[in-house]
């Protein structure tokens, strides 16, 4: 279990991005995090995976506890290895100059067990499209194939938790559906917990057990999938439904007024 409490993060000592975020990730569950651009979602993932320092960020207050251990001061390589946390970055965790085989080998390089070959077969079975491109530079593959390889790379580290930063970005709707199906399968078969940061709320809500909504560096709403799906604001702002029949008028919807209520 990963518990984040009252997290405050700044970049370059002055740019405040997170103002007291608390999030709990249960083992083996898919948790989604929704929010507009600039809400601080990526910063939260960077803090969790420990790479925040590389981006000149600092944790001012609050704690991140993985299995009860404080990790905000721990080296990211150790977080990845010891706690099995793998972070699929927005630009995809793929090495473009390496071919598919080399990518998968690299990702498994920190492991000491003997199941690497078996896991490689499993990843290729999960993403058959990669099989045809084993020896081509991965940088030349399509966006969909790269995202598959990105997830494949993550699986090769034998993770307990996957942090996914907008995996649906730039993918065709049919590919998004297919990818989320695979994510559910991974979650159910391997029991890998997932923290799914998304802008595509409709797709993310379908797969998540639980969700959070962030705005301007704060969590403004949280709940189980059912709770969130029935919430009027979520339905209107994120799922694009709700308020049926009424004309979608900017003034009538009083978007700003209602958003303010969340901040309170």
């Amino acid at each position: 279990m990963i518990v984040i409490e009252g997290l405050r993060v700044v970049y370059r000592d002055v740019i405040s991005v997170l103002h007291g975020v608390s999030v709990t990730l249960e083992d083996g569950q898919i948790t989604t995090l929704l929010g507009a651009n600039g809400a601080g979602k990526t910063t939260l993932l960077r803090t969790l995976s420990g790479v925040l320092r590389i981006y000149d960020g600092d944790v001012l207050e609050g704690s991140v506890k993985i299995e009860g251990q404080e990790v905000t001061r721990i080296n990211p390589v150790k977080i990845a290895r010891k706690f099995g946390i793998v972070y699929i970055v927005e630009e995809r965790t793929v090495f473009p100059q390496l071919n598919v085989m080399e990518n998968l080998k690299c990702a498994a390089s920190s492991r000491r067990d003997k199941d690497v070959a078996r896991d490689m077969d499993r990843v290729l079975a999960l993403f058959p499209a990669l099989k045809t491109r084993l020896h081509g530079k991965s940088g030349y593959m399509s966006g969909g194939e790269q995202q598959m390889l990105s997830i494949g790379n993550a699986l090769m580290t034998k993770p307990k938790t996957m942090l996914l930063d907008e995996p649906s970005l730039g993918l065709a709707p049919i590919l998004v559906r297919e990818m989320f199906k695979i994510l559910i399968r991974i979650n159910e078969e391997e029991g890998i917990a997932m923290f799914l940061v998304e802008q595509n709320a409709t797709a993310a809500m379908k797969v998540a057990h639980k969700g959070y909504v962030m705005e301007n560096g704060r969590v403004v709403l949280e709940g189980t999938r059912e709770e969130l799906e029935s919430n009027e604001d979520i339905r209107e702002f994120y799922l694009g439904s709700g308020g049926e029949g009424k004309e979608k008028d900017y003034r009538q919807s009083k978007r700003y007024k209602r958003r303010k209520r969340w901040l309170g």
Partner: peptide
């Protein structure tokens, strides 16, 4: 291969452990 990978991206290699 690891040297080429970290040359590609240090952050990506770090998040993969």
């Amino acid at each position: 291969i690891l040297m080429r990978a970290t040359a590609d991206s240090q952050v990506k290699s770090i998040v993969l452990g």
